[in-house]
Computed example of a mutant assay.
Amino acid sequence: MGNLDIVKGGKSSSSSVRLDPRLSLTGHSRGINDVAWSPTAAYVATASDDKTLRLWSAETGDAFVEFRGHTNFVFSCKFNPQSNLLVSGSFDETVKIWDVRCGECVATLPAHSNPVTGVDFNRDGTCIVSGSYDGLVRIWDTATGECLKTVYAEGNPPVGGVRFSPNGRYVLSGTLDGRLRLYDLFGGHTNERHGVDRPQPRGGKCAKTYAGHANSRYCVFAAFLSSNPRRRCVVSGSEDGRVYLYDLQSRLARQTLEGHTDAVLAVDAHDSLELIGSGGMGNDRCVRFWAPSSSSRVDG
C-alpha cells in the first residue's frame, strides 16, 4: 500500500492542512461510546453510558431528539441508509430500532444473553446485524424483527464488533480471541441471483479469518477499506497501539500503522476516499488520519 502520511495533532506531516474543532455537542451526562453519521443529512447520533441516544445537528450543534428506553449503557448505534431509522445495541442485552423523526422506539429485539457490543444495517436497510459478549452474531429482518440467521465461532469467544460489508453479502465480526472473521451470508451465491439482500439457508459459513492484531480485553472495531479496487483491505484496531491492514482476499497483513501510544479501539475507513481514521485510548487520546503518500497513490 506504500507509505502513509499521518495527520497528527491537527497538522499533516506533508502539508499545512489543519483539522480544527467546529462544534462541541454537550448534553449527555456520562461517557459516549459511539458516534454515527446520517448517510443522507447533516445529522449525528450518539450512544452513551447514560442509557440514552441523541440526535444532533452537525451544522449547529443543536440536540433534536433524545431516545430513551434502554435500561443500561448504550454501546453502539447506526443509521439505516434512508436515515429514517436508528438501531442501537445496549448492555441491557437488547437491540432497539428507533424512528429518527420522533424518537419513538418502534421495535425491541431480545437479541442476546449478554451485552450487545455492535449493530449495523446492511446496504439497503432490510437487515440488521448484532454481536454480543455471548459469542453470537445474529442477522435480523428490520421490518419483522425475525432472526434470520445466527453464526458463531468455535468456542464462542465474545464478539466485540460487527459490520456488514459494502455489498451486504458478508459480515465482519471481531472477537476477543484476537481474530476477525468474515461470514458469507449467501453461501457462495451472488446477491443478484436471489434478487434481495437476505441471507440464504446455505449461508453463514466463515469465509476468511484475519489474525495478527491484539484483542483480548476490549471491544476493538474494524472496517472495510474498499475505495481503491486494487487494494481492498480489512482495517482493525489493536490493543498493542497499532492499526492493522489485512488484504481482503489473501488475509495477509499488508501494513501495520504505528503512531499511537495506547490501545487503538476505534477505527473507520472513508466510503469513497482511501482514508482511515483511528483513535487511541487514555494514554494517547489522539485521533489520527492515514492516507497514501503522494508516491503511492497511483501504484497498486
Rank of each mutant, 00 (worst) to 15 (best):
G155M: 02
R169W: 09
G135K: 04
L182T: 06
Y183S: 01
G168L: 15
H194K: 14
H189Q: 11
G168V: 14
P158D: 06
T144Y: 01
T117I: 04
L176V: 15
N156G: 08
C127W: 03
T190D: 05
V151Q: 02
P166M: 09
D120V: 03
D197N: 12
P158F: 02
Y133F: 12
H189G: 12
Y152C: 04
S173Q: 06
G160P: 09
T142S: 15
T117Y: 01
G187K: 01
S132Q: 15
I139Y: 12
G155Y: 01
T150R: 01
G135V: 10
Y133L: 15
V129S: 08
D184H: 05
N156M: 05
A143P: 09
V151W: 06
G168P: 10
D141N: 12
P166R: 12
R193F: 03
R123V: 00
S173H: 15
G155P: 07
G195A: 05
H189D: 03
A143T: 13
S173T: 15
L182C: 03
A143S: 07
G187C: 13
F121C: 03
G131T: 11
T150D: 10
N156R: 04
C127L: 08
S165M: 06
F164H: 09
I128N: 03
C147D: 10
P158H: 10
S132A: 13
D177C: 04
H194T: 10
D141Y: 10
L185A: 02
G178K: 00
V151E: 03
D184C: 11
G188Q: 05
K149H: 06
Y133N: 09
L136Q: 12
G178I: 07
D177R: 01
D184E: 11
G155I: 06
L185E: 00
G188K: 03
P158K: 07
G155Q: 07
L176C: 08
D134H: 10
T126D: 03
D124E: 15
F186E: 00
L172Q: 06
V119Q: 05
N156K: 13
F186L: 04
P157F: 10
H189M: 09
R123C: 10
V137I: 13
G161L: 14
V171N: 05
A153E: 14
D177L: 11
F164V: 08
V116L: 08
T175I: 14
L136N: 08
R163E: 02
Y133E: 14
S165P: 15
C127V: 12
N191P: 05
L180T: 01
V116R: 00
R138I: 07
L148N: 00
G168A: 15
P166F: 01
T117W: 15
I128T: 07
G178S: 02
D197F: 13
K149W: 11
V196L: 13
T126E: 14
C127P: 12
G174A: 12
R193G: 04
A143N: 11
L172T: 13
H194C: 15
L136P: 14
E192R: 08
G135R: 14
R123G: 09
G168Y: 11
I139F: 02
S132M: 14
N122S: 07
V119W: 02
D120P: 03
Y152K: 11
K149V: 09
G195D: 01
T142Q: 11
V162F: 03
R193C: 08
D134Q: 13
I128D: 05
L182F: 02
G125T: 06
N156L: 13
G161F: 12
R123D: 07
R163I: 03
